[in-house]
Amino acid sequence: QYKLILNGKTLKGETTTEAVDAATAEKVFKQYANDNGVDGEWTYDDATKTFTVTEKPEVIDASELTPAVTTYKLVINGKTLKGETTTKAVDAETAEKAFKQYANDNGVDGVWTYDDATKTFTVTEMVTEVPGDAPTEPEKPEASIPLVPLTPATPIAKDDAKKDDTKKEDAKKPEAKKDDAKKAETLPTTGEGSNPFFTAAALAVMAGAGALAVASKRKED
């Protein structure tokens, strides 16, 4: 009698068979294992007439167990938060979910874009303008004329002030004479000065007065 010990991944146990020799028993056991989907390494112990079949655990490639991950970057252009961060993800969709959660946790809500070549996400917050509040242009400074500094008044001594007054009066006198001369030139000519009769009478009076003066002097002599 021969014995078979099964150490399979899905089947474990023992069974026996009657055979004329070990070779015949081995054929029977291998057919049995094959029928039950057991495929492994076989050993035989002649002392105990025991066969053992052991399935090795399937070696799984690490790449099959853990999907390949890629590093993705997020650029934040927020109104109050600006910067960059990264995450590792199996695909862009997974990275996007992580980045949007990160942005939401930090109060950033804007327009999202993605560049597959650089594996970069960008979120930009738009500045909202309040309706009716149009931007006002800064007032242009008016052209200013530079002020001319005033010349301080120079105090005048009393004596100098009197001299100035005297000079002013002396300066006025010639001007007054000139005014009188002008008035004389502009006076109208009277009839006496221009009538020949009056001129002859005046000469006769003057001659008579002269003769009287000569006669009076002779009497005195």
Score class of each variant (00 low, 15 high):
Asp45His: 12
Leu11Trp: 04
Ile5Gln: 11
Ala33Gly: 05
Gly13Ile: 04
Thr15Met: 07
Glu14Lys: 10
Tyr2Trp: 11
Lys3Pro: 02
Phe29Val: 06
Asp35His: 11
Lys49Met: 08
Leu11Gln: 04
Ala23Trp: 15
Glu26Asp: 00
Val20Gln: 10
Thr48Leu: 12
Phe51His: 02
Thr15Gln: 08
Leu11Ile: 06
Ala19Asn: 08
Gly37Phe: 07
Val20Arg: 14
Asp21Val: 14
Gly40His: 00
Leu4Met: 06
Gly8Arg: 05
Gln31Pro: 02
Glu55Phe: 04
Asn34Asp: 01
Leu4Cys: 08
Ala25Val: 05
Thr24Gly: 09
Glu26Arg: 00
Glu18His: 14
Thr50Tyr: 14
Ala47Val: 13
Lys30Asp: 00
Trp42Glu: 00
Asp46His: 15
Lys30Tyr: 00
Lys27Asn: 02
Gly37Leu: 07
Tyr44Pro: 01
Asp35Met: 13
Lys49Gln: 11
Gln1Pro: 13
Tyr2Lys: 03
Thr17Arg: 12
Asp39Arg: 13
Val28Pro: 03
Gly37Asp: 07
Thr48Val: 11
Thr50Glu: 14
Gly13Val: 05
Val28His: 12
Gly13Gln: 04
Ile5Pro: 00
Val38His: 02
Tyr44Gly: 02
Asp35Phe: 09
Thr17Cys: 11
Lys9Gln: 10
Tyr32Asn: 04
Ala22Ser: 09
Trp42Val: 00
Tyr44Met: 05
Val53Pro: 01
Lys30Pro: 00
Glu55Val: 05
Val53Cys: 12
Ala23Phe: 15
Gly13Thr: 05
Leu11His: 04
Tyr44Gln: 02
Gly37Gln: 07
Tyr2Gly: 02
Asp35Lys: 12
Ala22Pro: 10
Asn34Ser: 02
Asp39Asn: 14
Thr24Val: 09
Ala47Ser: 12
Phe29Ser: 06
Tyr44Ile: 05
Gly40Tyr: 02
Thr16Lys: 10
Lys30Gly: 00
Ile5Leu: 13
Ala33Pro: 00
Val38Asn: 01
Glu55Met: 04
Thr50Val: 15
Gly40Gln: 00
Val28Glu: 05
Asp21Gly: 14
Thr52Ile: 08
Thr16Glu: 08
Lys9Trp: 11
Thr15Asp: 04
Gly8Trp: 05
Thr50Arg: 15
Glu41Pro: 08
Gln31Leu: 10
Gly13Cys: 05
Tyr2Ile: 05
Thr48Cys: 12
Lys9Ala: 09
Lys9Leu: 10
Tyr2Arg: 03
Glu14Trp: 13
Val38Lys: 02
Asp35Glu: 11
Asp46Cys: 13
Lys27Cys: 03
Leu6Ile: 15
Gly13Asp: 03
Val53Ser: 06
Glu26Pro: 00
Lys49Tyr: 09
Leu4Glu: 01
Leu11Thr: 05
Gly40Trp: 01
Val38Trp: 01
Tyr44Trp: 15
Glu26Lys: 00
Lys30Arg: 05
Val53Lys: 01
Leu4Lys: 02
Thr16Asp: 06
Thr43Arg: 12
Glu18Tyr: 14
Ala19Gln: 09
Gly37Glu: 06
Asp35Val: 14
Tyr2Cys: 07
Leu4Gly: 05
Leu4Asp: 00
Glu14Ala: 09
Thr24Phe: 15
Ala47Met: 12
Glu55Cys: 04
Glu18Leu: 14
Lys49Thr: 10
Glu41Ile: 15
Thr10Val: 06
Glu26Met: 00
Ile5Glu: 11
Lys49Ser: 11
Ala33Asn: 01
Gln1Ala: 14
Ile5Asp: 08
Thr15Phe: 06
Gly8His: 04
Ala23Tyr: 15
Thr17Ala: 11
Leu4Val: 08
Asn36His: 06
Thr15Gly: 07
Thr16Ile: 08
Asp45Glu: 10
Glu41Trp: 15
Ala23Leu: 12
Asp46Ala: 15
Lys12Leu: 07
Ala22Lys: 03
Val38Ser: 02
Asn36Trp: 04
Val38Arg: 02
Ile5Val: 10
Asp45Val: 12
Lys9Tyr: 10
Lys49His: 11
Thr17His: 10
Thr16Ala: 12
Thr10Ser: 08
Glu55Ala: 05
Trp42Cys: 01
Asp21Leu: 14
Leu6Asp: 02
Leu4Thr: 07
Val20Leu: 10
Lys3Met: 09
Glu14Thr: 14
Ala25Tyr: 01
Ala33Met: 08
Thr54Cys: 08
Gln1His: 12
Ala33Lys: 00
Ala22Cys: 06
Lys30Ser: 00
Leu6Asn: 04
Trp42Ser: 00
Glu55Gln: 06
Asp46Val: 14
Asn34His: 02
Ala25Gly: 11
Asp35Ala: 14
Glu55Thr: 06
Glu18Ile: 14
Leu6Ser: 07
Lys9Arg: 14
Val28Gly: 10
Gly13Asn: 04
Asp21Phe: 13
Glu41Asn: 14
Trp42Met: 00
Thr24Asn: 09
Phe29Met: 08
Ala22Gln: 03
Thr15Val: 08
Ala19Phe: 05
Asp46Tyr: 15
Lys30Trp: 01
Gly13Ser: 04
Asp46Trp: 15
Glu55Asn: 04
Thr50Asn: 13
Thr43Val: 07
Lys30Thr: 00
Thr54Val: 08
Asn36Lys: 04
Thr24Pro: 12
Glu14Asp: 07
Thr43Asn: 09
Ala19His: 07
Asp46Lys: 15
Asp21His: 13
Val20Thr: 09
Lys3Val: 10
Val53Ile: 05
Gly13Glu: 05
Phe29Ala: 04
Glu26Cys: 01
Thr17Leu: 07
Glu26Trp: 00
Tyr32Phe: 14
Glu41Met: 15
Thr50Lys: 15
Lys49Glu: 10
Asp35Arg: 15
Trp42His: 00
Val20Ala: 10
Asn36Arg: 04
Thr16Arg: 13
Thr52Tyr: 07
Lys30Cys: 01
Phe29Pro: 01
Val20His: 11
Glu26Ala: 00
Glu41Ser: 14
Asn34Leu: 01
Ala22Ile: 03
Gly8Val: 04
Glu18Cys: 13
Ala23Ile: 14
Val28Tyr: 10
Ala23His: 15
Lys3Arg: 10
Asp45Arg: 13
Lys9Ser: 09
Gly40Met: 02
Tyr44Arg: 02
Gly40Cys: 03
Glu26Thr: 00
Val28Trp: 08
Ala47Asn: 12
Lys49Pro: 06
Glu14His: 15
Lys49Leu: 09
Ala25Trp: 02
Tyr44Val: 03
Gln1Lys: 13
Gly13Leu: 03
Val20Pro: 09
Thr52His: 08
Ala22Tyr: 01
Thr54Trp: 08
Lys12Met: 09
Lys27Ser: 02
Ala33Asp: 00
Glu18Asp: 12
Asp46Asn: 14
Asp39Gly: 08
Lys3Ile: 10
Val38Thr: 04
Tyr44Asn: 02
Phe51Asp: 00
Asp21Thr: 13
Asp21Ser: 12
Val53Gly: 05
Thr15Ala: 06
Asp35Gly: 15
Thr15Asn: 06
Thr52Pro: 01
Gln31Gly: 14
Glu18Met: 11
Lys9Glu: 09
Asp21Trp: 14
Gln31Ile: 06
Glu26Gln: 00
Thr48Gly: 11
Asp45Gly: 11
Thr48Trp: 12
Lys49Asp: 09
Lys12Cys: 11
Phe51Lys: 00
Gly13Trp: 05
Thr48Arg: 12
Val28Asp: 05
Gly40Arg: 00
Thr15Glu: 07
Ala25Asp: 01
Lys30Gln: 00
Thr24Tyr: 11
Thr10Asn: 06
Asp39Ser: 15
Asp35Thr: 13
Thr54Leu: 07
Glu26Leu: 00
Thr17Ser: 09
Thr48Glu: 11
Tyr32Asp: 02
Asn7Tyr: 14
Ala19Ile: 06
Asn34Pro: 00
Lys12Gln: 09
Asn7Pro: 02
Lys12Ala: 10
Lys3Leu: 13
Asp21Arg: 12
Leu11Ser: 04
Thr43Gln: 13
Asp35Gln: 13
Thr48Ala: 11
Asn7Ala: 10
Thr54Ser: 09
Ile5Trp: 12
Asp45Phe: 10
Thr54Asn: 07
Asp39Gln: 10
Tyr32His: 06
Asp45Pro: 02
Lys27Ala: 02
Leu11Pro: 03
Val28Asn: 13
Ala19Pro: 05
Thr48Gln: 12
